[in-house]
């Protein structure tokens, strides 16, 4: 009997020792420990709390990829506390925005506003940043509902970037149709433009010479093979170059806009809400 009690004591001591060892500060181990608790748990509410714990833990460590994954496991309906719920929706919205899942970000943001009527500049800023990436109508509609701080007006640039179009595109194409290579030169690609002029001019001259020498079959074959291919190919190249030019200008606008927003975010920082 005495030995049985001693053994029991030893078992308890080892148990305590192992539990203490497991209480590792290491991030990965803590995540694993929570997952083990989730596995052992049979209560959905408790499981949900543990999912949230994992979600928040990964946010603290700035492990955003994992945060987004863990986010999909958390269910808002299991929360009884409204503060926890609103913090969760806020964080969910922010992390979805950070991993470029803007549709989800909007859903969580709308859910957040459904729980709390937050009219702070930070909340407005997050909303505008999310809606601006969706489409201009939802952005404008959302903007109408706000009593907007004037500092936030510069976010308009974000919603206008996807709609940027190069002016007089048809002019470039017509220039290419009239003088092959001219349209390409006008887009800024001088080498390809002049290359087109030389190739098309040279092949036309060659075909003309064949005709003069009465080599009619060759004239037909080379004329058919070269001239339409180079002529229409040049027009296609101009269209491609125009697309690239448009993308380049759009990228420049995006960089300028990003700088403006960065300044704004320094003034009104948007942070995760981690109460623990």
């Amino acid at each position: 009997m005495k030995w049985l009690i001693t053994s029991l004591l030893v078992f308890i001591c080892i148990n305590a020792l192992v539990a203490q060892t497991n209480e590792d500060t290491n991030y990965e181990n803590s995540m694993l420990k929570i997952e083990q608790e989730i596995f052992m748990s049979e209560n959905d509410t408790l499981k949900n709390e543990l999912y949230l714990k994992k979600f928040n833990g990964s946010l603290k460590e700035k492990d955003f990829k994992r945060s987004y994954f863990e986010l999909s496991r958390v269910r808002g309906r299991y929360f009884n506390d409204s503060v926890t719920l609103q913090d969760f929706y806020w964080n969910a919205s922010l992390i979805s925005k950070l991993v470029n899942k803007v549709d989800y970000a909007e859903t969580y943001y709308d859910a957040y506003l459904g729980v709390v009527k937050d009219s702070s500049v930070n909340a407005q800023l997050l909303g505008l940043l999310i809606k601006a990436e969706l489409d201009s109508s939802s952005y404008n509609e959302f903007k109408k509902t706000l009593t907007l701080d004037t500092a936030l007006n510069c976010i308009d640039c974000l919603s206008s970037i996807p709609y940027y179009r190069l002016k007089n595109k048809l002019g470039y194409i017509w220039a290419s149709r009239l003088v092959p290579g001219l349209g390409t030169v006008l887009t800024g690609d001088i080498y390809n433009g002049f290359g087109s002029v030389i190739i098309l001019g040279g092949s036309s001259y060659g075909v003309y010479n064949l005709f003069l020498n009465k080599v009619y079959f060759s004239t037909g074959i080379w004329g058919y093979l070269f001239i339409p291919r180079f002529y229409f190919g040049n027009i296609r190249m101009t269209k491609y170059k125009l697309q690239k030019l448009e993308e380049k200008r759009r990228a420049k606008l995006a960089i300028d806009c990003e700088l403006t927003i960065k300044e704004l975010l320094i003034k009104y920082p948007i942070d995760f809400r981690l109460s623990e």
Binding site: T6, V10, F11, I14
Partner: peptide, 14 residues
Amino acid sequence: KLFIVCLMVCVSSY
């Protein structure tokens, strides 16, 4: 011996 057996059972359970 009994103590060692107990100890091994405890450790192996982890």
